[in-house]
């Protein structure tokens, strides 16, 4: 736990250095926040076409989009910079992280911390908060707990995908865009009700193969106490922490294998 202080120190130094040029940082922060506002706006532009999405009305759509936005924003702020690993593997700069007596992964995340991404977290909180406020939720202790835990388990899921996507660079340096299909693609996928994807292979694979149904859609159904039109059993809605744990195990295992596989550039 003593290491934690060191990481905090690195993160603080990052924040200080990146906010040195105030104007540049302000533009960066505004742009990064606006770009993710666009994704949320898209949901509502499409919602406005027929006043519903996949059979769900405004409050449910807001809740699902808010959960997805918040979970992704937290993951992006904490784990999003893992994608820098590609450059480090290519340049051999990863050696420097391995030489220090700290976790290579934690260093990777701390050293590349991007404070501009915090704007998105605030934005996600606002949308999720609005969703919770307008949705007709029959509050009880279990639902309160679910409402608090779900953005975090979703963030863990996305975080694991960021790590898995970055880890692939140990074998395949130019893999960058493939990871985007599952991270950014996952964010878009989870922003909409699952019913929109039909019952085909694509929807099933993203929802249950990767587990994106557990990020926003199923927990939102539990909060709203609505039956799933596609007949997913009710108890699965409470399983997000479990799927997040499986994701963590998968990501850690892959990271361990990957880091053993790492051969420096030799320069």
């Amino acid at each position: 736990m003593a290491d934690l202080g060191v990481y905090l120190h690195i993160v603080r130094a990052q924040i200080r250095s990146q906010t040195q040029y105030r104007m540049s940082f302000a533009i960066d922060l505004a742009a990064s926040t606006l770009i993710s506002a666009l994704d949320i706006a898209t949901v509502f532009v499409l919602f406005s076409v027929s006043g519903g999405l996949g059979g769900f009305g405004g409050p449910a759509v807001l809740l699902i989009a808010g959960l997805s936005a918040l979970a992704f924003a937290i993951a992006d702020a904490v784990f999003g910079n893992a994608e820098r690993l590609r450059e480090l593997v290519r340049s051999g700069g990863f050696d420097a992280l391995l030489l220090r007596p700290l976790s290579a992964l934690a260093q990777l995340l701390a050293v590349n911390f991007a404070p501009r991404r915090v704007g998105r977290v605030v934005q996600g909180m606002v949308v999720y908060g609005l969703g919770l406020a307008v949705a007709d939720i029959d509050w009880n202790p279990a639902r309160v707990l679910l409402a608090v835990v779900t953005p975090l388990t979703g963030a863990v899921m996305f975080g694991c995908l960021f790590i898995i996507g970055a880890t692939v660079a140990f074998w395949w340096v130019e893999s960058g865009e493939v990871a985007n299909a599952f991270t950014y693609g996952g964010r878009d996928f989870t922003s909409y009700p699952l019913t929109m994807y039909g019952g085909g292979f694509f929807g099933r694979f993203f929802a249950f193969g990767i587990g994106f149904a557990f990020v926003a859609y199923l927990p939102a159904l539990a909060l709203l106490d609505r039956p799933d039109p596609m007949g997913v059993p009710d108890w699965l809605r409470w399983c997000s922490p479990l799927t997040a744990m499986i994701a963590v195990l998968a990501a850690t295992a892959l990271w361990r294998v990957g880091i053993r596989h790492y051969r420096s550039t030799g320069s």
Partner: peptide
Amino acid sequence: YIMLSVAASAG
């Protein structure tokens, strides 16, 4: 899928 679903619910 998203567009097709939106079109379907808009008739």
